[in-house]
Amino acid sequence: MRTRTRTTITATVAVLLALTGCGTEPEPYTPAAGPTPSATADSEAQYLSRARDIEFNGTPTDAELTSFPSQWCDALTDGHSVEWTFDPSGGDLYPLGQKWGTVQQDAYALLVAGVRAYCPDHLDAVKAELRESGEY
């Protein structure tokens, strides 16, 4: 009887071990969600398309124009206003270069285009601030 019990236990353990080995395959690694290159490229294309409709004093390069939106978004995310963002004593992020510039109304249009493309969660607040100041 004792041999029979040992045989039964051994067989049961063997079956359980075999079944444990037949489990489902682990899920493949997938990286955490984040901005994809295509999303960034789409944002850049959208922004530059709108920027090309703005009249500049001079001719900014695409690289010069695309250097601003991420900085504007960072300033807005940090809780700063549009006024602070453009102010030389604040963020000093008014869109201009060594050989080009913008009048204030066009600078605001460029800011709205950048926020719309790169950080649309701030768009309503930016528009509201510009409306309150009479600039939008």
Results as ranks from 00 to 15, higher is better:
D78T: 08
Y29F: 15
D53A: 11
Y29Q: 01
C119H: 01
E44F: 01
V115F: 04
P26Q: 05
A45E: 11
W100N: 10
W72T: 06
Y136S: 05
P37T: 08
Q71C: 10
T61W: 12
T24F: 12
A109C: 03
D121L: 06
G91P: 12
N57M: 10
T10K: 05
A11W: 00
A45W: 02
T85I: 05
V13I: 15
L93Q: 14
A32D: 05
S49V: 07
L110M: 14
N57C: 04
G97Q: 11
G21I: 03
P31C: 00
R6L: 12
Q46K: 12
P35C: 00
S49P: 10
P88S: 08
R2F: 15
L110C: 09
V112A: 01
A63W: 13
A117Y: 10
C119G: 09
G21M: 05
D87H: 13
V82R: 02
D106K: 07
S81E: 07
E25L: 14
A113H: 02
D62E: 15
G34I: 00
T30N: 02
P35Q: 06
D124L: 03
T40S: 12
T61E: 14
R116H: 11
T59G: 12
R2Q: 11
S70G: 14
T20G: 15
A32G: 00
G97M: 11
Q71R: 14
D92I: 04
T24L: 13
D53S: 09
Q71A: 15
T12M: 10
C119I: 00
C73D: 08
T3R: 13
Q104R: 11
A45S: 13
S133T: 09
T102Q: 07
A33I: 04
L123I: 00
T102A: 14
L111A: 03
E44W: 01
W84H: 02
P120F: 01
F68T: 03
T61R: 12
A128N: 03
P31A: 01
L96S: 15
E83Y: 09
K127Y: 03
G79Q: 06
A117R: 07
E132H: 10
E27L: 10
E135H: 10
G79K: 05
D74K: 10
P37E: 08
N57I: 10
K99R: 14
G97P: 14
P120C: 00
S81R: 05
E129T: 02
A33R: 07
E27R: 09
P35D: 06
F68K: 04
R52Y: 05
L19F: 10
L111N: 00
Q105M: 09
V112Q: 01
C22K: 03
E83I: 05
C22H: 07
Y136D: 09
A51Y: 04
G134N: 08
A117F: 13
T59K: 11
S43Y: 04
E132R: 12
